[in-house]
């Protein structure tokens, strides 16, 4: 049906009453949205619940999408806000997203288990594992920039920050990721 259409054309169809056309958008972006949610809320069940909520919200407010930015940028802004609300509901400290201590605690909890699994990991899953060890804010910006096909400007827009701030945040996230890989995946890093 609407598979050959671009995002804006599908949105027009949906707004004109073709509700089923929305399934194309869901299928097209479900992996991106789910991955992003998973990086932030860190739990498959929760991530799926939040991702579903994201698509429902996006549908409900689809008329508010003006097409000024990419649909994905708008969609990821909903992901960001929905994930933050979810974490708030779960009474997790949102400010801890940038907190080094939380990052270190998560690190120490996971390191033992992960060290045993290291040898079986492929390069790709190693990166995914390493991203999973990061704090949610770092994991989010890396996923947005590398996997969600967002430019630095769009990433900044999704996160509601200045481009320069996004640049610095991305740099710090990558530095931490590199440290994670060097600490937990020594063998893999050596073999690169």
């Amino acid at each position: 049906m609407s598979t050959g259409l671009n995002d804006n054309e599908i949105i027009s169809e949906v707004l004109n009453g073709n509700q089923q056309a929305y399934a194309v958008l869901v299928n097209r972006y479900q992996n991106y949205v789910f991955t992003l949610c998973l990086r932030i809320v860190q739990g498959r069940e929760d991530a799926e619940e939040v991702a579903q909520d994201v698509f429902i919200k996006a549908y409900k407010y689809l008329a508010d999408f003006r097409g000024a930015a990419k649909f994905t940028t708008w969609l990821y802004t909903i992901v960001n806000n929905t994930c933050i609300s979810f974490l708030r509901k779960k009474k997790l400290d949102i400010h801890s997203l940038d907190n080094e201590k939380v990052f270190e605690v998560a690190d120490s909890q996971d390191s033992g288990m992960r060290a045993n699994l290291v040898e079986q990991k492929s390069r790709i899953s190693m990166v995914n594992e390493a991203i999973g060890l990061l704090n949610p804010a770092d994991a989010e910006i890396i996923t947005l920039f590398y996997k969600a096909e967002q430019s630095l400007e769009e990433t900044a827009q999704v996160l509601g920050i200045e481009v320069n701030a996004a640049k610095v945040r991305l740099h710090r996230a990558r530095t931490r990721l590199k440290e994670k890989m060097e600490t937990h995946f020594i063998e893999e890093v050596r073999n690169l």
Binding site: V26, Q30, N31, R123, M126, V127, N128, I131
Partner: peptide, 18 residues
């Protein structure tokens, strides 16, 4: 390496649920 990382997929019923 970061560029080569893979996307995660939700359950099969995800799209249907939405």
């Amino acid at each position: 390496l970061l560029k080569s990382s893979e996307l995660e997929a939700p359950s099969m019923r995800f799209s249907k649920n939405v």
